[in-house]
Design a protein around this nucleic acid. Structure first.
Lengths: 213, 213
DNA sequence: TCGATGGCTGTAAATATATACAGAACATCG
DNA sequence: CGATGTTCTGTATATATTTACAGCCATCGA
């Protein structure tokens, strides 16, 4: 609501400034704004900047080239700059509680959403070695994208009888197999007609912070 | 070691540029450098910038005011500026080139420095399966902390004969073994008296963005 | 219907900035 | 020892950049 009094055009200008900073490492000049937006007069850019300054989303340094600073107000509304929402780290999931329940959250970490696709919603600390041969070890953080749907072969976070587990998904009609990636473990087979199975999400990435040694 | 050929003065200049960007949001002008360092001639600043450009830690945009861009090489050696500095992703390392040379940088990702310890300086894309049993697979990103020193058992990024490789480090007097974690691969044994071995850094974490499935 | 604001063109300067040229003193290294 | 690199002073200039002034047209709330 703070800067929703920005017009559509002013928002375009603001976005361009932010992107320019991301791309080049410094803000644009009036002329560079003109070039991008097709203005024939540098004053078109100047008056836009003045307006954005008046509305508090940027600050203009007088007499300084490229003296444009984005304020906190601007950053909060920009997709690229402010969009690094922290991901909660889910540790041991208490039986019966939702994965993302307050009591299960150990910590929060920010990182680039572009690293994983689709976008992860939380990190789950993996317990045990049942997925060892897929390179997922005890203590690893699994980046999880929340969705109730899974295709065969995908690595899923599943819940059976209030137990949360990470396995490879394999469906065959009414029969779902949760396959470990370690010969020391047995597949879990569920008949959907008899037993409940909830897919909590898909594994979209792995983060390991403690290398042995 | 790549940019350790920076002189003390040049490092001071580089630090000031980085701090200026953090503080003001854009790089300094020649005059601002002069003011800070007490130069009486703008050419003092100019020639320092030229030197930093030549050494690859900054890039100068010709004819652009404040046209100074920090390269990945610079960022890796600068103190972590509040986790805002992105980590460069190093892909295939061209033979003979420094790991952090511009040509080897594929991308840049920001994320929480608290995730790994010690602090990683860059991400290296792992090739091959020689560390499979340590849960490091082909295509994984290894978070690397730059240091020339390693202790036995640590996972290192090493360079032999212009080849960069990830292995487990084992030293025995003048003999260093680089141990794979996969029985299909043979250890690399180096006699330090006969062959050069450079430790580029320590593996401090793993990120995998593509799960099979 | 007036006044304020948004969104521009066009012109003109003041001044901020980059950058070349000509040194000088001092180190380092083959 | 000469070549090369570092770190500066000092001067000059082309140009990049900001920024004021004078307008034009449209929209919108009072």
């Amino acid at each position: 609501m703070t800067q929703d009094n920005l017009t559509k055009r002013q928002r375009e200008i603001l976005n361009f400034i932010s992107e320019h900073i991301d791309r080049e490492g410094f803000p644009p000049t009036r002329n560079e704004l003109c070039e991008y937006f097709g203005f024939r007069s540098p004053n078109a850019a100047e008056s836009h900047l003045k307006a954005l300054d008046r509305k508090g989303v940027i600050q203009l340094g007088r007499g300084r080239s490229r003296g444009i600073t984005l304020t906190a107000m601007a950053r909060a509304s920009l997709p690229a700059a402010g969009g690094r929402t922290p991901l909660p780290l889910v540790g041991r999931v208490a039986a019966g509680s939702p994965v993302l329940a307050e009591e299960n959250i150990e910590n929060e970490y920010r990182f680039d959403p572009a690293l994983f696709s689709p976008r992860p919603h939380y990190l789950l600390r993996v317990q045990g070695l049942s997925m060892r041969d897929a390179g997922i070890l005890d203590g690893d953080l699994l980046a999880v994208h929340r969705t109730p749907e899974a295709r065969n072969g995908q690595i899923v976070v599943a819940r059976i009888d209030d137990e949360v587990t990470v396995k490879r998904f394999q469906r065959d009609g009414q029969r779902v197999s949760l396959l470990p990636e370690n010969p020391d473990f047995e597949p879990i087979v569920v008949d959907l007609a008899q037993q409940e199975l909830a897919i909590e999400g898909l594994g979209v990435g792995v983060i390991r912070s403690h290398l042995t040694g």
